[in-house]
């Protein structure tokens, strides 16, 4: 497979996975505007922007006023969703994903292209005013569903060649990075709260789509440590960090060695990152530090894949 195509398909997976995470976060966020306390809404906005590693143009507020929060939330939602200048906005991710798909149309199935193009065209017809007037939750829910349909169609129609592996790898790396980043943002914001306060755990479970699983495993009492354990280490939870790092490792393993440099570097780094999640997590006290190490591991997987497969000097 052409290195350029491999890179295009890999980034296709990354952009759409990023868009999906953003949809899930935004769905929870706009839902919270209806009935959650202002402090909790502000907490979740700060967590969201920390996760995206983006500072909104007008800065982040910290005023506990309902009117202010509601008005500002509209602006922030617009910036997160439709702002072209924000490289991680939903519109930027979907546009870039679609652009990668357009360029790599010969590497993906026709059904995948049509599905994504339809979602893109539908998205183009939307704006913050219209979705706010109708139901912003429904908009983010539908967009997320469209993105997942794309991956479902990919699963059903895509030939299981290298392109498939790079698509899955891109998804896995992005999901791992996004999830770790979100958990780190949660931990960082928690440390700023007064003792005894806990915000954002329910929405965190919802974003990871782990609410029902949590209840089945731990009951209705939502405790921070259990939430983290579930989201990081559960091998059967589709959005857990373990699932994502394992998936990255498996896809790299199927690809074989990269043609340049240290042949097995990407695979080795992925293996090391997997073992941090599997074997270090239960025994380590400083979970924040370990999350940072996992985050660095996912960053290195990405860098070694770029170097080994996409920019090799052959």
């Amino acid at each position: 497979m052409l290195s350029r195509n491999a890179q295009g398909v890999y980034w296709l997976g990354r952009y759409l996975e990023r868009a999906d995470l953003l949809c899930r976060m935004m769905k929870e966020q706009v839902g919270a505007l209806v009935d959650r306390p202002v402090e909790e809404i502000n907490f979740a906005w700060r967590r969201l922007f920390a996760c995206m590693q983006y500072t909104p143009a007008g800065g982040l507020f910290n005023v506990a006023s309902d009117n202010f929060t509601q008005a500002d939330s509209f602006t922030l939602a617009g910036e997160t969703t439709f702002e072209e200048g924000n490289p991680n906005s939903l519109t930027a991710c979907i546009r870039m994903g679609r652009e990668n798909a357009r360029q790599m149309r010969n590497c993906i199935s026709a059904e995948m292209w049509t599905s994504l193009n339809l979602s893109y065209l539908k998205f183009l017809d939307s704006d913050i005013v219209s979705i706010w007037r109708r139901s912003p939750e429904a908009f983010f829910d539908e967009t997320s569903r469209d993105l997942r349909s794309f991956f479902g169609i990919a699963h059903a129609t895509m030939y299981r060649d290298e392109a498939w592996l790079f698509l899955q790898l891109g998804r896995a790396v992005e999901r791992a990075q996004g999830s770790v980043s979100l958990l780190l943002a949660q931990v960082a914001e928690e440390t700023k709260l007064e003792t005894g306060l806990e915000y954002g755990l329910e929405s965190l479970l919802a974003i990871f789509e782990a609410r029902e699983t949590y209840r089945r495993r731990f009951g209705f009492d939502v405790a921070s440590e259990r939430v983290r354990e579930l989201l990081v280490t559960d091998p059967r939870l589709p959005n857990s960090i373990r699932q994502s790092t394992d998936a990255a490792f498996e896809n790299l393993n199927k690809m074989g060695p990269a043609p340049d440099g240290d042949f097995e570097m990407p695979l080795r780094i992925a293996g090391r990152t997997c073992s941090l999640v599997r074997y270090e997590w239960p025994d380590v006290d400083d979970r924040r530090k370990l999350l940072k190490e996992i985050s660095e591991g996912t960053r290195q997987i990405h860098a070694s894949v770029e170097k080994g497969f996409f920019h090799n000097s052959n």
């Binding site: 497979m1 052409l2 690809m255 043609p259």
Partner: peptide, 8 residues
């Protein structure tokens, strides 16, 4: 030649 993930 073309540059592929497996070399030239």
């Amino acid at each position: 030649f073309m540059r592929t993930t497996l070399g030239l």
